[in-house]
């Protein structure tokens, strides 16, 4: 695969990529898109354009179809990872699109930039995020060429990659795993569930993602995110996609 030095592989044409909100097209008082969203990713405050939280979004594009004025559109862009949760919320002027993740600071880049070992914790994940993280290890994507590997013990890890809404039943296991990772350590939340609970947000059996329990350094949205979106997030965090 030529990526990241060459062009990225194309997303499937029906994938649609990330979303963009055009606030100037969002008609005052219109709420057409709100009820069609399965995960309540869309809200609207008075006198504000619609707020689209891509952390909750499962990218079904029902809102894109429902919007009568084309205020919500698909961008076709695979890049979606952010460092701050609020950077996933679109709508206001200047916040039409995702504010992509900045790289780690110099000290952490020196530590992790060429060797990052992650422990994966699935905590209510449906095995789709897990599968598309796993696929990065296959011959096409070849994740280890970037020095990124998944390890079999938290003691060997530089951080956690979490999937799933974090079920109550996994709280103890997640905390123990987190405690067992030596400092300094990172947390990467992959998928709508790990970011905000996904389709299970509000269920008493789950947390609303990983953030209530551990500090998250990178959020990668999707249901599940395309492997390219996950890889983009990891490389962006390590400062290996500067200017791209």
């Amino acid at each position: 695969m030529a990526y990241p030095n060459g062009p990225a592989p194309a997303l499937p044409d029906r994938h649609g990529g990330s979303l963009r909100v055009n606030p100037e097209k969002c008609v005052e008082g219109c709420t057409e898109c709100l009820p069609v969203c399965p995960t309540v990713a869309l809200t609207r405050a008075p006198a504000q354009p619609v707020a689209l939280d891509l952390g909750r979004c499962i990218f079904c594009a029902a809102c894109v179809q429902a919007c009568p004025t084309g205020a919500i559109v698909q961008t076709g862009d695979h890049r979606m990872a952010v460092r701050r949760r609020e950077d996933l919320v679109l709508g206001n002027e200047g916040r039409e699109e995702i504010r992509l993740a900045a790289a780690l600071d110099e000290r952490l880049r020196r530590l992790f930039g060429r060797s990052l070992r992650l422990r994966q914790v699935s905590a209510g994940g449906c095995n789709a995020c897990e599968s598309d993280v796993n696929v990065l290890g296959t011959i096409g994507w070849d994740l280890s060429r970037f020095g990124i590997q998944f390890v079999a013990s938290p003691r060997h890890a530089d951080g956690l990659l979490i999937t799933g809404p974090v079920t109550r039943a996994m709280e103890l296991a997640l905390k123990k795993t987190w405690d067992a990772v030596p400092e300094p350590k990172l947390v990467i939340a992959v998928g709508a569930c790990a970011i905000a609970g996904g389709p299970f947000a509000g269920h008493p059996e789950v947390n609303q993602g990983a953030s209530p329990l551990v500090p998250v350094d990178l959020f990668i949205p999707g249901c599940p995110p395309h492997p390219l979106t996950i890889l983009d997030g990891l490389l962006r965090l390590l400062g290996r996609l500067e200017g791209r």
Partner: peptide, 29 residues
């Protein structure tokens, strides 16, 4: 039991707006 997300208990009174997304992720593969 570690993966218990409360799918069945959420269904009475439904179908709800999240129901189809939950059915698609009962087992995501």
């Amino acid at each position: 039991g570690y993966q218990h997300r409360g799918i069945e208990t959420a269904l009475p009174g439904g179908p709800h707006r999240a129901t189809l997304a939950q059915m698609e992720t009962v087992a995501g593969d």
